[in-house]
């Protein structure tokens, strides 16, 4: 799961554990920094896209047709995307994103990738046995739902447009944004009904 056996991984882990032992730092603060940094350019941008797509059919059509153009037109901090494709989940179709080669990830809309996204086990198994891997991650999909696995590369990044949660019909776009999790936009979780 981790890279704690690489020399640099061990050095980083040793320093972090010493800092924690001495009360100079807590793992939570480190996590919080990474999260804050992530959210600067991160999932909030993706969540905006998703909430807007749920609220505005014309925007959704544009996003599904050419997400690269839409996203670059919005001028998100974190740089331009070269090629972004949005895949919409339906009742019978589920989408999930991986990068089998390394850890290509739509940074501009999702921020820093979670550690498991880079894990060799996730990268290899999600392609071979997606239903099983998703179930292990807490997402049980019924057998009739088709699962589509999208392999990111340096050239093409994918973002999943999750199903709008049941019970969210009356919510504003701003309220919807708060519901959208990073993992739902990678496709490893579904948004719970309200």
């Amino acid at each position: 799961m981790t890279d704690h056996n690489s020399p640099q991984g061990i050095r980083a882990e040793a320093i972090e554990s010493l800092l924690i032992d001495k009360g100079l730092l807590s793992a939570e603060v480190v996590d919080a920094v990474i999260t804050t940094y992530t959210e600067r350019v991160g999932p909030m941008n993706g969540a905006k896209l998703v909430a807007k797509a749920w609220s505005d059919p014309a925007f959704k059509a544009d996003l599904l047709a050419d997400a690269t153009k839409v996203v670059n037109g919005l001028g998100f901090e974190g740089g331009q995307v070269d090629k972004l494709i949005v895949k919409e989940c339906g009742l019978m179709d589920h989408h999930v994103v991986v990068c089998t080669l390394c850890s290509c990830y739509p940074w501009a809309v999702l921020g820093l990738p979670p550690a498991w996204y880079k894990d060799p086990e996730y990268r290899s198994r999600i392609v071979r046995e997606p239903r099983k891997v998703l179930a292990e991650m807490g997402l049980e999909l019924s057998p009739e739902v088709r699962i589509h696995v999208w392999d990111s590369s340096a050239e093409v990044r994918y973002l999943v447009l999750p199903l709008r949660p049941d019970g969210s019909e009356a919510l504003s776009e701003g309220e919807l944004e708060q519901l959208v999790s990073r993992d739902s936009m990678i496709g490893v979780t579904k948004l719970p009904s309200l």
Binding site: T2, D3, S6, Q8, G9, R11, A12, E13, I15, E16, L19, L24, L25, V29, V30, D31, A32, V33, I34, Y37, G78, G79, Q80, V81, D82, C102, S103, Y105, W107, A108, L112, P113, A115, K118, A154, R157
Partner: peptide
């Protein structure tokens, strides 16, 4: 290192190290 508008973290220890350096600064060290 950047590519396509992203910082490239090649391993979890890299984002962890980056997080520690920032956190220590936030804590005023």
């Amino acid at each position: 290192p950047m590519a396509n508008g992203e910082i490239i973290f090649e391993a979890p220890w890299q984002s962890r190290t980056f997080g520690m350096a920032q956190a220590l600064c936030l804590e005023g060290h």
